[in-house]
Simulated scan of single mutants.
Amino acid sequence: MTIGDALKEVQVELGLTAEEMTAGVISKGTYSKVINNKTRLSSDLLLKILFSHGIDIEVFFNKTKDTYAPKNIIIEEKLSQEFGAAFNNHDLVSATDCLKKIQKQNNNPYLLQRAQIGVAFLSNTIEQLDKNLAQLIVNELNTHENWVSNLQALKLFSNSMLVLSDEKVEVLMKIFFIRLKRMNIKSETMIERYAIICSNYLHWKYDSLKQAKSQEKNKHKRNISKSIKYLTKLDKSPRFLIYKILGNYYKNIFTGDIDSAINIKYHLKELGFTSLTENWPI
């Protein structure tokens, strides 16, 4: 989809006329040429139109990604989405098939390592993964001066908790929160990715504590509390609602209020979110 196509689609979605859409920024004639792909619009004028109608810029440009993004990026993103769907549905066959496609691409080490970990998890073969994989993952994260601001690195870390040592995960989470405190992130995509990190950590931590010795169970409580705080303090927008609920769910679990945690999960199931809560621990 071109910029012009995306503008036309948004105009229809908002129920606006051409005159209302341009909002005095450009003439109706110029706008007609833009949406018919006969002329280009400067970035300044495009942003004025988008901002004047409160249009989500991230959503808008996602509409145009297939037209303007490099081919390899488009392929990798589609494979990432395909693998994510297979993993979330615990579909080992589809996940394995997607891993083979990713291996053929051989361009993105982050995506490949994520897929390898995911398939190993679904097939219960985590122990059989190459012992060097954990170090490779750490090395990948260390290649970025601030991996907390790198979307690919964050996705890799989110999945790699399954193969890294407990101590390494805790150290990386500590670094994660230190760097996050210094940043002023407003991108909803990054905020959601941080929420996923916190959610995955809490799930991982719960499983880890079940197997830990009694003297280990009081360690790293700060990472737990910070993860829960991050989730529960998220904005009340629909995009983040499930993460806020998940934060309260884990808050109840880690404070021993199991009945309240079960109640949260029960009500979500009653609302039709059975698949979403299927892998929640309690």
Rank of each mutant, 00 (worst) to 15 (best):
H267V: 01
W147H: 08
N150K: 12
K28A: 11
L45K: 06
W204V: 10
A153Q: 03
A115Y: 04
A212N: 13
L7H: 04
S237G: 11
T277W: 01
F87D: 15
K78Q: 14
M183Q: 15
V171A: 13
R179I: 04
L234P: 02
K265V: 08
I117A: 08
Y201L: 14
Y110N: 12
L276I: 00
V169N: 11
G4W: 08
L136H: 07
V34F: 10
Q152M: 14
E82M: 13
I117C: 06
S43R: 06
S275P: 00
E140G: 05
N146F: 02
D97A: 15
I55S: 01
S225Q: 13
K213F: 14
I264W: 05
E145F: 07
F83T: 08
S42Q: 05
E19R: 14
H53F: 00
D91F: 11
K28M: 12
K63S: 07
D235W: 05
K265R: 10
I185G: 08
E270I: 01
I191G: 07
G256A: 09
Y194D: 07
K219G: 03
L16I: 04
K174L: 09
I175W: 01
E76C: 02
I224V: 13
L14H: 03
A6S: 11
V25W: 04
N223H: 02
D56A: 06
R179P: 04
I197F: 08
N142Y: 04
A195G: 15
I196M: 10
K269P: 00
A95D: 14
V34Q: 01
F61Q: 01
T189I: 15
K210P: 03
A95H: 11
K213Y: 15
N223C: 04
R40H: 07
L271K: 10
K219W: 12
T189Y: 13
K217I: 07
W147V: 09
I3C: 01
E9S: 11
T22Q: 04
N36P: 04
N248P: 07
T96M: 09
R40T: 07
Y249W: 04
N252W: 02
L154I: 05
I262T: 11
E20Q: 09
K233N: 10
T67I: 05
Q105F: 06
L41W: 00
K244A: 11
G118I: 02
H203Q: 09
K186W: 06
L133V: 02
